[in-house]
Amino acid sequence: MEILAFGVQADEKPLLEKAFHGHHDIRCLDVFLTEDTAPIAAGHPIVSSSVNADLGARVLRILADGGTRMIAQRSTGFNNIDLDVAERLGLTVARVSSYSPYSVAEFAWTLAMAVNRRIVRASNRTRDFDFRLDGLMGRDLRGRTVGVLGTGKIGQAFTRIAHGFGMNLLGWDVAPNPACAELGMEYVEKEQLLAESDLISLHVPLLPATRHLIDAAALRTMKDDAILVNTSRGGLVDTEALVAELRAGRFTGVGLDVYEAEAGLFFLDKSLEVVEDDTLARLVTFPNVVVTSHQAYYTADAVGQIIDTTLQNVLDHLAGRRGENVLVPA
């Protein structure tokens, strides 16, 4: 059987081909799964999608009409999939429930340190042989307070690094994580965390209840010199409200690996095109903001685990087994 994989990155392709070798053929496409590209899947019972795929009702119907019976998404998040429609169409949908939490946690700290110590600005200067220190002053993190919104596996890994820095730990979640509590984390209400934290990092899933978790009111609650990092989902932050606060001169730095309107932009080369997203265009102009292209998960370790899990999801489906990663049927 040939499996069709959409949105495959160049570094990912040989890993996918190696993992599926000896099991099934896999055809890798660099285009993302959208309404325009979905017809390519005709005749393929199994399709693998990436996190930025459009798996709304119209795309799912195209896939189902073309003979697709399973969608194996290569990500943990699945807010891009209309699960109700998938179930009505008789499609099986599986995801990757977990992969290396260290990949994302370490990258979140990379962004935090980059904006705190002005790494991008310093690097750009030295390329022009400008070695002045003006405007590059950062802050020690030891003794300062970090607020972690979401203390699951990734939030826990982030917290352990914060503990290593010697920071005061505040957490917010539906339930405390005992491992974080053992490190000295105090669980508080979101408003207290935002008001008291010098560094805030987001590690919660995107759900209707968490959409724009960091809205205008939340941003106003934060310290003027706070650092905000988001490596989870772009929709957690009201970007327009964030831009308004940045224009007012607030925040020491903001590190974003995700953006709420990233579909159709991230993972693509838009350098020769006019980007019509005015909010993103404004966001990247701020000298205290670093935006990366949803790469926090992108380590050989994490991608390898994602691919291995995707293969197992496919094998389970073909063998009639229901694995823990199956989202549909419910």
Rank of each mutant, 00 (worst) to 15 (best):
M113R: 02
Q295M: 15
L149S: 00
V254K: 03
P45C: 07
F165M: 08
V204P: 00
P178R: 10
D36W: 02
D36K: 15
F131L: 13
I307L: 08
R250Q: 02
L169R: 06
R74Q: 12
F267E: 09
A330P: 00
T210Q: 05
L183S: 04
M70Y: 12
E273P: 00
R61Q: 14
E106P: 00
A175F: 13
Y102W: 09
K18H: 10
F107Y: 15
T145P: 05
F131T: 05
P14D: 06
V314M: 09
L311V: 08
V96D: 04
V326C: 12
R250L: 02
D30A: 12
R88K: 15
L63R: 08
L246W: 01
D130F: 02
T76G: 14
S75T: 10
L194A: 09
A38K: 09
P14E: 06
Y259D: 02
T309H: 01
A122N: 08
I154F: 04
A179C: 02
T37H: 08
R250N: 01
S197C: 06
T221Y: 00
R118L: 07
I119H: 11
W172E: 09
I119L: 15
R61G: 01
G150N: 12
A302F: 10
Q305V: 05
G171W: 10
V237S: 03
R322M: 02
L236N: 03
A248S: 12
V47R: 08
E276I: 00
D128H: 14
L169F: 09
V85P: 00
N124M: 14
P45D: 11
R160Y: 07
A114F: 09
G235N: 09
L228M: 09
T210D: 03
I46K: 02
A57N: 02
G323S: 11
M167Y: 08
S232K: 07
A241Y: 12
Y297M: 04
V93R: 06
F267G: 00
F165V: 02
L280H: 01
H212K: 14
L213E: 01
L256A: 08
P178Y: 11
V59D: 05
I214V: 14
D198M: 07
T310F: 01
D11P: 00
D301W: 01
A281V: 13
V237E: 03
C28W: 09
L133T: 14
D128K: 15
R139G: 00
T126E: 08
G138E: 09
S48R: 03
V59Y: 07
M167S: 08
V284D: 06
L170G: 06
L199P: 01
V51E: 03
D269Q: 11
G77Y: 12
T292M: 09
T126L: 14
L91F: 03
T37A: 11
A38N: 07
T92L: 01
E106G: 01
